[in-house]
Amino acid sequence: LDITFHVDGKNIHVHGASEEVVRIIEELIKNNARAEEIKETLERLLR
């Protein structure tokens, strides 16, 4: 699975993920999660 995301100002662009995963990533970023935390969360979800 190949998910890429980047933050452009306040806009979060996520590619290669389901809508549910996109929402989770957006929440994590809004809550100022570190990249490592986001990665760990995604790995748990995608197991």
Results as ranks from 00 to 15, higher is better:
Leu1Gly: 08
Leu1Thr: 10
Leu1Met: 14
Leu1Asp: 07
Leu1Lys: 13
Leu1Cys: 07
Asp2Leu: 04
Asp2Pro: 01
Asp2Tyr: 02
Asp2Thr: 06
Asp2Val: 05
Ile3Val: 12
Ile3Lys: 06
Ile3Gly: 02
Ile3Thr: 03
Ile3Cys: 09
Ile3His: 14
Thr4Phe: 14
Thr4Leu: 05
Thr4Ile: 15
Thr4Tyr: 15
Phe5Trp: 07
Phe5Asn: 05
Phe5Val: 15
Phe5Cys: 05
Phe5Leu: 15
Phe5Gln: 07
His6Ala: 07
His6Phe: 13
His6Val: 15
His6Trp: 15
His6Pro: 15
His6Gly: 05
His6Cys: 13
His6Met: 12
Val7Ser: 03
Val7Arg: 00
Val7Glu: 08
Val7Ala: 03
Val7Pro: 08
Asp8Ser: 03
Asp8Phe: 02
Asp8Pro: 00
Asp8Tyr: 02
Asp8Arg: 01
Asp8Glu: 09
Asp8Gly: 07
Asp8Gln: 05
Gly9Met: 01
Gly9Cys: 03
Gly9His: 02
Gly9Gln: 02
Gly9Arg: 00
Gly9Val: 00
Gly9Ala: 02
Lys10Gly: 09
Lys10Arg: 09
Lys10Pro: 02
Lys10Ser: 13
Lys10His: 11
Lys10Leu: 15
Lys10Asn: 13
Asn11Asp: 15
Asn11Pro: 14
Asn11Val: 15
Asn11Thr: 14
Asn11Ala: 15
Ile12Ala: 00
Ile12Phe: 14
Ile12Asp: 00
Ile12Arg: 00
Ile12Lys: 00
His13Val: 11
His13Glu: 07
His13Thr: 12
Val14Trp: 06
Val14Thr: 02
Val14Ala: 07
His15Ile: 11
His15Gly: 04
His15Tyr: 06
His15Thr: 10
Gly16Met: 05
Gly16Cys: 03
Gly16Tyr: 04
Gly16Trp: 03
Gly16Pro: 01
Gly16Gln: 08
Gly16Val: 04
Gly16Leu: 06
Gly16Ile: 04
Ala17Tyr: 01
Ala17His: 01
Ala17Asn: 01
Ala17Pro: 03
Ser18Gln: 05
Ser18Trp: 03
Ser18Met: 04
Ser18Cys: 02
Ser18Asp: 08
Ser18Leu: 04
Ser18Val: 05
Ser18His: 05
Ser18Pro: 11
Ser18Phe: 05
Ser18Tyr: 03
Glu19Gln: 12
Glu19Arg: 09
Glu19Tyr: 11
Glu19Asp: 11
Glu19Ala: 13
Glu19Cys: 04
Glu20Thr: 09
Glu20Phe: 05
Glu20Ser: 10
Glu20His: 10
Glu20Ile: 08
Glu20Cys: 03
Val21His: 07
Val21Cys: 04
Val21Gln: 07
Val21Ala: 08
Val21Arg: 00
Val21Tyr: 03
Val21Ser: 05
Val21Gly: 02
Val22Gly: 03
Val22Ala: 05
Val22Met: 05
Val22Arg: 06
Val22Pro: 00
Arg23Leu: 10
Arg23Val: 08
Arg23Lys: 12
Arg23Phe: 11
Arg23Glu: 08
Arg23Pro: 01
Ile24Pro: 00
Ile24Lys: 11
Ile24Thr: 11
Ile24Ser: 06
Ile24Gly: 04
Ile24Ala: 10
Ile24Val: 12
Ile24Tyr: 12
Ile25Val: 11
Ile25Gln: 00
Ile25Thr: 01
Ile25Asp: 00
Ile25Leu: 06
Ile25Ser: 00
Ile25Glu: 00
Ile25Arg: 00
Glu26Ile: 14
Glu26His: 14
Glu26Met: 13
Glu26Gln: 14
Glu26Gly: 11
Glu27Trp: 07
Glu27Phe: 07
Glu27Ile: 10
Glu27Cys: 05
Glu27Arg: 08
Leu28Val: 02
Leu28Asp: 01
Leu28Pro: 00
Leu28Lys: 08
Leu28Arg: 04
Leu28Cys: 02
Leu28Glu: 01
Ile29Lys: 02
Ile29Met: 06
Ile29Pro: 00
Ile29Asn: 01
Ile29His: 02
Lys30Leu: 12
Lys30Cys: 07
Lys30Phe: 10
Lys30Gly: 09
Lys30Pro: 00
Lys30Glu: 08
Asn31Phe: 03
Asn31Lys: 11
Asn31Thr: 11
Asn31Ile: 09
Asn31Arg: 12
Asn32Phe: 07
Asn32Leu: 08
Asn32Ser: 11
Asn32Trp: 05
Asn32Cys: 04
Ala33Trp: 05
Ala33Glu: 06
Ala33Cys: 05
Ala33Ile: 09
Ala33Val: 10
Ala33Tyr: 06
Ala33Asn: 06
Ala33Leu: 06
Ala33Pro: 05
Ala33Asp: 04
Ala33Gly: 09
Arg34Phe: 07
Arg34Ile: 07
Arg34Asn: 13
Arg34Leu: 08
Arg34Asp: 12
Arg34Pro: 13
Ala35Val: 14
Ala35Gly: 10
Glu36Gln: 12
Glu36Ile: 09
Glu36Leu: 09
Glu36Asn: 10
Glu36Arg: 08
Glu36Ala: 11
Glu37Arg: 08
Glu37Lys: 13
Glu37His: 12
Glu37Thr: 10
Glu37Phe: 10
Glu37Asn: 08
Ile38Gln: 01
Ile38Gly: 01
Ile38Ala: 02
Ile38Tyr: 03
Ile38Phe: 08
Ile38Cys: 01
Ile38Asp: 02
Lys39His: 12
Lys39Trp: 15
Lys39Asp: 08
Lys39Pro: 01
Lys39Thr: 14
Lys39Glu: 14
Lys39Ser: 13
Lys39Met: 15
Glu40Gly: 12
Glu40Trp: 04
Glu40Tyr: 05
Glu40Lys: 13
Glu40Val: 12
Thr41Arg: 09
Thr41Ser: 11
Thr41Cys: 07
Thr41Ala: 14
Thr41His: 10
Thr41Glu: 12
Thr41Pro: 01
Thr41Phe: 12
Thr41Leu: 12
Thr41Asn: 08
Leu42Gly: 00
Leu42Asp: 00
Leu42Arg: 00
Leu42Gln: 00
Leu42Lys: 00
Leu42His: 00
Leu42Trp: 02
Leu42Ala: 05
Glu43His: 09
Glu43Gly: 11
Glu43Gln: 10
Glu43Val: 08
Glu43Ala: 09
Glu43Cys: 02
Glu43Thr: 11
Glu43Leu: 07
Glu43Met: 08
Arg44Met: 12
Arg44Gln: 12
Arg44Lys: 13
Arg44Cys: 06
Arg44His: 13
Arg44Val: 12
Arg44Asp: 11
Leu45Met: 11
Leu45Arg: 03
Leu45Ser: 03
Leu45Lys: 02
Leu45Pro: 00
Leu45Asn: 04
Leu45Trp: 06
Leu46Arg: 06
Leu46Met: 14
Leu46Trp: 03
Leu46Ile: 13
Leu46Pro: 04
Leu46Asn: 07
Arg47Ala: 15
Arg47Lys: 13
Arg47His: 15
Arg47Pro: 15
Arg47Cys: 06
Arg47Phe: 04
Arg47Glu: 13
Arg47Thr: 15
